[in-house]
Amino acid sequence: MALLQLRDIGKEFGAIRALGGVDLTLHRGEVLGLMGDNGAGKSTLVRIMAGNFRPSHGTMHFNGRPVEFHRPADARDAGIEVVYQDLALADNLTAAANVFLGRELRRGVWPFRLLDHAAMQQRAAELFQELKSETRPGDLVRQMSGGQRQAVAIARTRLADARLVIMDEPTAAISVRQVHEVLDLIQRLRDRGIAVILISHRMPDVFTVCDRVAVMRRGRKVADKPIGQTSPEEITGLITGALEVA
């Protein structure tokens, strides 16, 4: 049974057609590379799966059931975690506060439920350690490097038992060593049966960790094949439009 099944998903922003009739299937523990030029519609597809906005048309099945996400929390409750392209961090809060934003740990009984600062710091520190990121849970995100900010955004996906983790260009702004950690994490997620969608412009990343690669061009999916049956050259051709379809 497929974990995620998108059928004929389309999205228009006024006169702009960002997505037109996209079908996509993803199985448990599968890592899909999603590639395409800027403006191809990758982030729009992510936002639909994440419950940011509804598709103009099309249906979505998750875990065997038809789903309609009205807000991001719906997708998260269903088991979909997202690392957004802009990371979605509040600069004025600490790393730990950002990791737990929207699902703070609290203790006490209502109405005296207060934040459990110590537990959140502790858990955030563990997550950063797991990601091998030198990030202090108590530091303000405003003062952090690109890699540390990325770690904060990725750490969020590890809070709950996710079934699907979507990463929108998670390696765009980080060092070689940190890219390695992110790819490592993706492999560990797959080993646990968690599906991953990796959006990336970096061909080596996609060919290192992905089982399958799908290519988008001008809002349409123009290719979707196992990584073993394609090559970086073919994918490049598909992205640029030198190759029409594969």
């Binding site: 991001p72 809060l93 506060a97 934003l101 929207g102 703070e104 439920r113």
Partner: peptide
Amino acid sequence: SAWGRHLFAIGGNERAARLCG
């Protein structure tokens, strides 16, 4: 409290707060 934390998050990055539920 979570409410107070959310107040600051909204002021820092309203879109991010919304995305985080």
